[in-house]
């Protein structure tokens, strides 16, 4: 069986102020996967990824990248990695093209090989026209794409994206998703993603781990996780104010808006019955949509449950 792209065993991180950021987590990311690592702020996502790419020193545990232990051959392990961090971490006064080429140099890639590769990446990410601009002149979205180009310059087998689309507008975000899907599908690059846009994780990732208070609280496939949802909530746009609400389980008014109703549907509940009752009550439904992202509901529930359990324990 092929080595996992990333294998983490008993990873622990205790900061100087005795803050236990990671409490012995285990994680496996198979080769070729598109993996989501989710968690609230301060849960330990960035610490985990920081340890993998050597920006954070671990306290204990083992990390292997494509079977290479970071304690025995960090240089080789790092060669497999491409990192897109959460914060902008390039020299703001350097030109876009130079930033990408310099990174190639740090990976030992000769310039004759790096130049066409950099051009290709900058063209793919819509930055080639900006290649002679200094980085600080770029918009937020362009800076994010610059970091993706920089991370991919040496053809890493594992790409780590720590909130790559934070502050990026919807249109650009979708084009970035398409790009990430493409490199995952066509080049076989394993991708680990952390994000606050749970719709992003649902759209892109096959497997998921949720981390909270330095512990993995869920590690499963996206499909299985979503199957755990026992209720889905929809918003129904109706043609006008509803005088008398039909007696349907889970149906209620939306505050501050007469032309919207909220419908919570349990797993197995037939929508036909709901619509028949609405029809009989002469409620004219114009459109219908999910109230929130499905994953978001699950995520909020899981984190809340764990926080409650933590409070009870303490």
């Amino acid at each position: 069986m092929a080595e996992p792209a990333l294998s983490i065993r008993g990873l622990t991180k205790v900061y100087g102020n005795d803050f236990h950021a990671l409490k012995g987590i285990d994680l496996n990311v198979p080769q070729g996967d598109f993996f989501a690592l989710l968690g609230p702020n301060g849960a330990g996502k960035s610490t985990t990824l920081g340890i993998v790419c050597s920006l954070v020193n671990k306290t204990a545990g083992q990390v292997k990248v494509f079977g290479v232990d970071i304690d025995t051959n960090f240089s080789l392990a790092k060669y497999h990695l491409g990192v897109v961090p959460q914060e902008f971490n390039f020299n703001q006064f350097e030109k876009v093209y130079d930033i990408v080429l310099t990174q190639a140099g740090y990976y030992g890639m000769p310039m004759r090989e790096a130049r066409p590769r950099a051009r290709q990446l900058l063209e793919d990410l819509g930055l080639w026209d900006k290649r002679d601009n200094v980085a600080r002149m770029l918009s937020g979205g362009m800076k994010r794409r610059l970091m993706i180009a920089r991370a991919l310059i040496h053809r890493p087998k594992l790409l780590i994206l720590d909130e790559p689309t934070a502050g990026v507008d919807i249109e650009l975000r979708r084009s970035m998703w398409e790009y990430m899907r493409r490199i995952n599908r066509e080049e076989g690059t394993t991708i680990i993603l952390t994000t606050h846009y749970l719709e992003e994780a649902e759209n892109l990732c096959r497997n998921i781990a949720i981390i909270n208070h330095g512990e993995i609280v869920k590690n499963t496939t996206m499909r299985e996780l979503l199957a755990e949802l026992d209720t889905e909530t929809f918003i129904l746009d109706v043609s006008g104010p509803v005088e008398a609400l039909p007696d349907i389980e889970g149906l209620e008014r939306v505050a501050h808006d007469d032309s919207q109703l909220q419908l919570s549907v349990k797993k197995g509940q037939r929508l036909n019955d709901v619509f028949k009752a609405l029809n009989d009550a002469h409620v004219d439904v114009v459109s219908m949509r999910n109230r929130a992202n499905r994953l978001e509901e699950l995520f909020v529930n899981l984190v809340a449950e764990q926080n409650q359990a933590g409070e009870i324990r303490s």
Binding site: L55, N91, Q103
Partner: peptide, 18 residues
Amino acid sequence: FSNKFQRSVEEMVVSPMP
């Protein structure tokens, strides 16, 4: 220090350079 300040030192730290 300016590499540290701008965090571009991370470009070197994440690379396989000894």
